[in-house]
């Protein structure tokens, strides 16, 4: 377990479709983390990693996300070769630089976000996707910088921006540098707004803290996948502070919709069509 799954036990890594150690030995088989149904990998890919039995949306990596969202073969990666800096020389039980090395080698990603441009139903778009397996999708200086470059690309190419957020929040190991990325990314989104380009935020389970309180909540349109957990403070922190039992469904997409935080909940299989339909109205010039 990483620090985030300890903080929010209900979103433990056993729900991660890509890293879960299936009870079924063969790599072709998987268990649904929600209903434990045995899932056949090729079938699962066809259903976009949504359990055909219970509709649970399994976690997927940033690149899988991009490949199922963009028109086939149109994804081109942007904002690469931005490396993480250990400005504070942070060390806890392990050094930050060691943690970065491990995250890079276990995910194959240089940081916790992937940026790219391509097409959605033929229309040019720029998209960003957080990689949750990379230190819980936490945002430090490099993630902030990559996101801003994504915004800049959308402005340069005059395209809408879509961000798939899934993140434990600001990255502790960069302390104030991380915290300031909330301001940096929010300021960049203001530039996008000034250019009259739409920003669609798609919330993926889970999003907390600094990413929730910046990139995720600032969409012109806020969309969430079903049953995604999204909040400012983690459930455990709230329970310890207020000492009450949390209401049923607290901080889930359905709760957010009821309280007015998001525009809609969209099933993964409908996401392309839905975003495309919204953009055709907000930004019909293409």
């Amino acid at each position: 377990m990483n620090w985030l799954t300890r903080l929010i036990p209900s979103i433990g890594s056993n729900r991660d479709s890509e890293s879960s150690k299936s009870k079924v030995p063969d790599g072709l088989w998987n268990n649904c983390p929600a209903c434990e149904a045995i899932l056949y990998q090729p079938e699962l890919e066809k259903s976009l990693f949504v359990c055909p039995k219970c509709d649970h949306h399994l976690r997927i990596g940033a690149r899988t996300r991009m490949s199922i969202f963009f028109d086939g073969g149109s994804f081109q990666e942007l904002a690469t070769k931005i490396t993480t800096k250990d400005i504070l020389k942070f060390k806890d039980t392990k050094s930050y630089s060691q943690r970065i090395k491990e995250a890079v080698s276990s995910t194959g990603e240089e940081e916790a976000i992937v940026i790219g441009k391509g097409k959605l139903e033929g229309a040019e778009i720029v998209a960003a996707a957080f990689e949750f397996r990379y230190m819980g999708g936490s945002m430090g200086g490099a993630v902030g910088t990559k996101f801003v470059q994504g915004v800049d690309a959308a402005i340069e190419h005059k395209t809408p921006l879509i961000c798939f957020s899934t993140s434990g929040g600001a990255r502790m190991q960069e302390s104030m540098v991380s915290l300031m990325q909330m301001a940096k990314t929010s300021a960049a989104l203001e530039k996008l707004k000034e250019s009259k380009l739409p920003y669609i935020s798609v919330m993926i389970d889970p999003i907390y803290g600094g990413v929730s309180a910046s990139i995720a909540m600032l969409g012109d349109i806020n969309i969430a996948e079903p049953k995604a957990l999204v909040g400012f403070a983690g459930r455990r922190v709230i329970e310890q502070t207020v000492r009450v039992d949390l209401p049923e469904g607290f901080q889930k997409s359905e709760f957010l919709l009821e309280h007015g935080a998001i525009d809609m909940i969209v099933h993964r299989r409908d996401l392309r069509a839905k975003v495309s339909s919204i953009l055709s109205k907000l930004y019909p010039t293409q």
């Binding site: 909040g231 207020v242 709760f255």
Partner: peptide, 17 residues
């Protein structure tokens, strides 16, 4: 910011963002 049920219901993240 205060971590509580009501704050989450009223959009603590959005208010800060």
């Amino acid at each position: 910011a205060y971590p509580g049920v009501e704050g989450e219901e009223r959009g603590q993240s959005e208010a800060i963002a």
